[in-house]
Write a protein that binds this DNA or RNA. Structure first.
Lengths: 206, 206
DNA sequence: TTCCATGCTGTTAATTTAATCAGCGTCCGG
DNA sequence: CCGGACGCTGATTAAATTAACAGCATGGAA
């Protein structure tokens, strides 16, 4: 897809937004109104340019005959799916843009209440819970965890995935692998629960 | 959503199909042509009925102003996603309608070349491969398997999931759990490879 | 400078489309 | 037999929409 001018990008964004909000493409007049043109022809010209550059397809003699090209559709998908977090840059919030490797559309109904992001698991410390190195953990952002849940925790700026266990005031982060020792943060240490796991996805390397 | 008459269902199906094929809703005239009406009014009346029953919403004074209601959209998703296979009725092909518990939309890009269905894993025989009881195996339909791949195999009408291993002419289906013995089908036994695993999904029960 | 792409205004004709009115036939339950 | 829901034809009208033409202005490349 050829590079778009600023104005063309705005038109394309509006088409996407309209499609999303109303379930059908806009008319020339609606585009003109949204972008502040006083002439519908301005929209027409932009649409021709977008078609020429391969961003959209125009259906002749059909009202609202605008469709996103395969490439433009792909882009919409990558803008709306669950973000995949690979490495977490030190000190950055998990969902910072720099940590997002890709976005994937996943059916919400599979993962209970709600899912917020995917986190690539590093290491074998949860091996015996069936969570292997490279698996994608489906995570819901919440500071509340129940005993036995797999949680994403941040201790002194280090993010880890462990099984949560609380006895009274004492919190422990357990591994599921005899080679790894449990973590017992010193009282007063900066332990933050960033989220709880609601699913696991493994692809390839079976 | 109230129950639809046959004809109303056909109209709704056509709207879905048109949306899918062209990316925009149909006009009254297009509906009439597709269903064989000679009057566009027949479509109009059907649309009113569909709106009254909550299947669609009509946007007044807008060409192609038809949108699927939340419920109807949900149904589209369940009609197009990957089928989840729970139990396989004896003797039936895996993808038989009776075996489908639900359908889920999953991002194709996650699971390599192509995925065909989800199969709920029963038992712990692949525990040490990180595949637990109740996990959903993402399966691609193919009769070809490579050494070490997790395969869906049918032996004498029984469907199992195992690790595939071939040495010359000898084929063995291995477990990943010392409590289970490998399966060595007698030469000439009806062993059919139904597909290979391309992913695993676990939701809940972490 | 000239040419061309971009980005717009303003207008108009032709066509598409929604929306409505008047009818006709069938089937079903009261 | 009546009333009502369903399913359709056919025609008409008003409004929405596309698509085209004539211009004007700007800025960059030849």
């Amino acid at each position: 897809m050829e590079i778009l001018t600023d104005r063309q990008q705005q038109v394309l964004d509006f088409i996407r937004h309209h499609l999303d909000a109303h379930g059908l493409p806009p008319t020339r007049a609606e585009i003109a109104r949204a972008l502040g043109f006083s002439s519908g022809n301005a929209a027409e010209v932009h649409l021709r340019a977008l078609e020429r550059k391969g961003a959209i397809e125009l259906i002749a003699h059909a009202s609202r005959g605008i469709r996103l090209s395969a490439m433009a559709q792909e882009f919409t998908a990558t803008a709306t799916g669950l973000p995949l977090i690979g490495r977490i840059a030190a000190g950055s919030p998990i969902l910072a843009e720099q940590n997002i490797e890709a976005r994937y559309q996943l059916d919400e109904r599979l993962f209970g209440p709600h899912a917020d992001y995917l986190l690539r698991v590093q290491g074998q410390s949860l091996r015996d819970a069936g969570i292997l190195d490279g698996d994608l953990l489906v995570v819901r952002c919440t500071p509340e965890a129940c005993n036995g849940q797999i949680v994403v925790a941040r201790i002194d700026d280090e993010v880890t995935v462990k099984r949560f266990e609380r006895t009274g005031e004492r919190v422990r982060l357990l591994s599921a692998n005899p080679d790894f020792a449990p973590i017992e943060p010193a009282t007063g240490a900066a332990l933050v629960i960033e989220g709880v796991a609601v699913g696991v996805i493994r692809c390839g390397r079976l």
